[in-house]
Write a protein that binds this DNA or RNA. Structure first.
Lengths: 174, 174
DNA sequence: CTATTGCAGATAAAAATTATCCATGATAAG
DNA sequence: CTTATCATGGATAATTTTTATCTGCAATAG
């Protein structure tokens, strides 16, 4: 059982984006630099987060990414599923029916007990991930991590976040 | 996140071996046939189970595999770890320290909170697998599966299990 | 207009998984 | 003692997945 490296990258990026103020953004290139990752590949994962509705993206200069909703409403499960896909880790190949003895299909309507047990464990895994809010991760980092790393992280965000153009209210909304 | 196909094969084989009587064995070839699997590859997985102490193997004609201990004391976790390895699915690459800002190593003595959260979820997964005993899987199959599949499975075991040579007690033990 | 940025798709490189083969040693049976 | 069966271990190949790069395109701030 293995999780791709993209998961780690995605969570770290989301945590960092939780630090940007208001509707400012941070570019994918900046985050790639922050974590020593390949920019072009990181974009793929960020895009998965965007597609999943976890991040919002802004094109153009001063563009980048920001959280699509408050960190309190983003869980590690959201991120893991966005990056790794929603399929369970255990995929039942129904090898029980692949033997030489042919029984008609009706004999196999009951789901495989092994599959059921494996999926039950996976539900426990996902439930635990669903408990972990991004805001908890960030708060824990702020409160308990080494002050130097916190300071460095905040400085990086401060330096790379980019305020967005103020929305000009249209005539009709004035 | 993905589990290899070997896990499914290994669990099915272990469940089947739970049905062989006494110290009889069943050959790897027979199990490969039962599930329509590649014999030479299945042997690899069976060997992993043997190495892990879940199965016992017997060489020679009439040889094969049997459970190394009662099915009550074999869990799905035992099997999954034997086949997939014991490392956690989430491996922290410490990308937090891979950025351009160099802090000395002492700033990173505290473990990464993201890693901690991911590992916690994984403990929940493993705990659930540790709850699932092979004997439960087998009992559930016997009691609730379609009677035809149960009959077919029992017949297969009956046909392929091989009694072992009786142990001749040595003079000194008599 | 121009430079920057995200996006989609094609493609390539690297790694892991799945599968096969062969030589070897063990052993039951003739 | 010979033969046939079976697990083991190592080498190797085929296949799939993961990781990474590149290019052209659309969006947009200045």
């Amino acid at each position: 059982m293995k999780l791709g490296e993209g998961v780690e990258a995605a969570i770290h990026c989301a945590a960092m984006l939780a630090g940007v103020e208001g509707n400012s953004t941070m570019s994918g290139a900046a985050m790639a630099e922050a974590f020593g990752l390949s920019p072009s590949y990181l974009l793929k994962h960020l895009n998965q987060l965007t597609t999943a509705g976890i991040l919002e993206s802004v094109s153009g200069p001063a563009g980048g990414y920001r959280l699509a909703r408050p960190a309190e409403r983003i869980t590690l499960l959201d991120i893991v599923l966005a990056v790794e896909g929603r399929e369970p880790a255990f995929r039942c190949g129904e090898i029980r029916q692949r033997g030489p003895v042919k029984l008609d299909a009706k004999a196999y309507v009951k789901p495989c007990g092994i599959n059921a047990a494996m999926l039950k464990a996976e539900r426990a895994y996902r439930a635990a991930l669903a408990e972990a809010k991004l805001s908890d991760i960030v708060a824990d980092f702020m409160n308990h991590a080494d002050p130097r790393t916190v300071a460095a992280s905040c400085a990086f965000v401060e330096r790379h976040q980019r305020p967005q153009k103020v929305q000009q209210p249209s005539k009709r909304e004035r």
